[in-house]
Amino acid sequence: MYFTSFEQFINMNGHGFYVWLSYACFALLVVTNIWVAQQRHRRLRKQIKSRLGRSAKV
């Protein structure tokens, strides 16, 4: 372990803001990309299913 205390880990000798901002951007990118892909998948399934349901009734 490089850091001796939690405050040190957050502060990173004054560079904390830059380091955490970078990692936050990375996390945001990963989460958004996953969310967008999953959301589209769910929406497509729903759309196609409802269309199938309609054509079955007819």
Partner: peptide, 20 residues
């Protein structure tokens, strides 16, 4: 973030390398 040593020139801002 936790175990890698800091860079002797850039200090802890070096850790950005792991996402950049």
């Amino acid at each position: 973030l936790l175990y890698a040593p800091a860079d002797y020139q850039q200090g802890n801002s070096f850790r950005i390398i792991y996402v950049h």
